[in-house]
Design a protein around this nucleic acid. Structure first.
Lengths: 214, 214
DNA sequence: CCGCCCTTGTGTACGATGTCCACATTCGGA
DNA sequence: TCCGAATGTGGACATCGTACACAAGGGCGG
């Protein structure tokens, strides 16, 4: 098998066949270890065993590649959230279930931030624009973006009577603010290097605050 | 006077006299428009009317310069917070005063984020490490860092009976998470470009949530 | 007052990066 | 079969961070 750290040995065919994906894959790995600034065009082409300029047949420029990586990372965030939700023990209590699903959204988000800090930072790094968080390619397995997952969880919360209707509008921004802020603190803020257990506790505290204050 | 956009005309003296500060000043301006990635060594030296390598007599490398800029920006955050606190109408009601001062911390923080997004992003961009938020050079006029200002506001809140003692520990991270998260949303998240008035409202909503949920 | 030396700036150079342009190779359809 | 469009290659350029050797000049001991 082709090593993951050496430049792809070589290619017998002139055409690569799947260069675009290969570049995204390579860039994804660069981002995993090193964040967005580590996504370097020439490094990605090197890894794909291709000349630097070949990249321009598939991406307008470095930013276009970075954006593709960002979307892929965002989709991973969504999948982590979905996985966290899928792991909640089923319950007959509708309200309790809605609440658990809501908390899972935040917990999954924070889990991803800690497990893949480089990719997490890449997901939310869009120079100049980042509305794309709600974009097509940013969706997870269920086809929903992180934002949509959060919105649904809030809707459920409201329908379960755990969130007053007049508090629902804009609630995603309150919740997102708090959780994302903690993620930043944990990744490269003063809370960096916290023991995973403590980090998890901190996350639950923040989610507690949200539930109380939303 | 020397123009602010042209490279410093020239220098008659061989020595610059205050190069270190001149570089920080120039870099600060670069960061103001363009954020941390816009802080480019050669550009700063150009502006100071000096050869690129001269910078290395005052900074170990680009990161050292960036760090200095970051600290300066952090100090500006502190000053903005202090200004916001100074602007609260004096009151006999101790509790109300403590509450107003607490809110001013968040409001000032958010105000700076919106007024100087480039510098704000630079302040909280420390590649690899950012504990420095609590550092010496990051202090404002009163000699306190943003973190210290927040901590004091929380102490006051507790002393005024507005925050249960058992909730005090770690409360700065809850508040900081929420406010910083919103700042990010406002700067380059989905809330970017929000009308200043609406942005202010959003800020007040987040602070409301914090007060309720903390 | 003079000469020395440490500090501060200069010049040149190197490797790396993003990107442009002209050219080569190949695939797929007319 | 042949030809154009798609895909890769090669070479070149500007810019950046930074290393190394050298120059200028200010301050201190004599």
């Amino acid at each position: 098998m082709a090593s993951a750290k050496n430049p792809q040995p070589k290619r017998d065919t002139y055409r690569h066949g799947d260069l675009r994906n290969a570049l995204i894959e390579a860039a994804l790995e660069l981002a995993r270890q090193g964040g967005p600034e580590a996504v370097v065009l020439r490094a990605a082409t090197r890894q794909a065993g291709v000349a630097p300029n070949a990249a321009y047949r598939h991406f307008a420029d470095r930013d276009a590649l970075l954006h593709a990586v960002s979307q892929a990372a965002m989709a991973q965030v969504a999948r982590t959230m979905e996985a966290e939700q899928a792991a909640v023990a089923p319950s007959d209590d509708l309200a309790a279930a809605a609440r658990a699903r809501f908390r899972a959204v935040g917990t999954g988000y924070l889990r991803y931030a800690q497990e893949e800090p480089g990719l997490f930072r890449t997901a939310f790094h869009v120079p100049g624009d980042m509305t794309h968080a709600a974009d097509d390619t940013a969706a997870g397995a269920t086809g929903k973006t992180p934002f949509e997952l959060l919105g649904e969880a809030l809707d459920d919360l409201m329908n379960a009577g755990l969130l007053a209707e007049d508090r629902r509008p804009g609630a995603e921004f309150l919740a997102w603010s708090a959780v994302h802020g903690l993620a930043v603190l944990l990744i490269d803020g003063p809370l960096r290097g916290l023991h995973p257990t403590q980090a998890h506790d901190a996350g639950q505290h923040v989610i507690d605050m949200i539930e109380r204050g939303i």
